[in-house]
């Protein structure tokens, strides 16, 4: 008799533009999910310039590139940063890893499926841009979370990536998380703007998962290489991330 395995939900955190807080959100969101007794695997999908390990002060021995090249058991590369939080570190400073070939993609898909069976959530932190690995991770995931700031360049890049994913890759469900928001009104304006544009030109409805306010605690935590949700649990940003984790079931 075959044992029934619980399938984890695979979340892809992406943005188009760099520097909008994808990695910081991924790490803190993952920790917030573990507080709800979920087991979370964070995959550092930034194949060229990985830094999830930096934010968590982890010492990396094997990364995605090593297991892809050697074919070793991917569990060897897993690092348990917290009791319910595992990290599959990415490679850094390896240009050839930015674009994944078909063979590497199917191999990586097999690895992630293999190791994710014991987790409730898999969160993939993608690189910036529209490289082949970014597109593949978005296709591979169950839910796509777009991090964007109220900055028009961030909105433009997010729109460009949404357009590409919807037009060429058949993805039509996107969740927005606004970062660095100064006030509820600014957040609503930003969401409204990008929603109107995607509705008008792509005929797509976007879901707004929530917003993270601009907070000095975040900057300080990044400098200290500690997740802000742990360093300053009472900060506005930490409370917002907890709220987002509570709403994870509303992801489209």
């Amino acid at each position: 008799m075959a044992l029934s395995k619980k399938t984890p939900r695979i979340l892809c955190v992406t943005s188009g533009k760099g520097g909008v807080g994808k990695t910081s959100f991924t790490v803190n969101f993952a920790i917030a999910l573990t507080r709800n007794d979920s087991r979370v695997l964070v995959v550092d999908g930034d194949m060229g310039l990985a830094n999830v390990d930096v934010l968590l002060r982890l010492s990396v021995k094997n990364n995605i590139r090593d297991i892809l090249e050697s074919g070793a058991d991917p569990r060897q590369a897993l690092i348990f940063a917290r009791p319910n939080l595992a990290v599959l570190p990415g490679s850094s400073g390896v240009p050839e890893m930015v674009s994944l070939g078909d063979k590497q993609q199917s191999k990586l898909a097999g690895f992630i499926k293999n190791i994710s069976s014991s987790f409730d959530y898999v969160i993939i932190d993608t690189a910036a841009g529209i490289g082949s690995s970014v597109l593949w991770y978005n296709r591979f995931s169950d839910h796509n979370i777009f991090i964007l700031s109220p900055d028009p360049t961030s909105m433009t890049d997010a729109y460009a990536l949404i357009k590409l994913l919807s037009r060429d890759h058949g993805i039509n469900r996107f969740n927005l998380v606004l970062n660095f928001v100064r006030g509820v009104r600014e957040g609503n304006h930003t969401v409204d703007t990008i929603k109107r544009v995607t509705q008008r030109f792509l005929n797509l409805e976007l879901a707004h998962l929530g917003s993270i306010p601009e907070d000095n605690a975040v900057r300080k935590a990044v400098l200290d290489q500690v997740p802000f949700i742990e360093q300053t649990p009472g900060s506005k940003a930490a409370r917002a991330v907890h709220d987002l984790a509570e709403r994870v079931h509303t992801l489209i």
């Binding site: 304006h189 703007t193 008008r200 030109f201």
Partner: peptide, 17 residues
């Protein structure tokens, strides 16, 4: 200002499209 920014963004996107 927020309304104008939104309109500007929409126009830029429309131009790109």
């Amino acid at each position: 200002t927020a309304e104008l920014r939104r309109e500007l963004f929409e126009r830029q996107m429309a131009e790109k499209e």
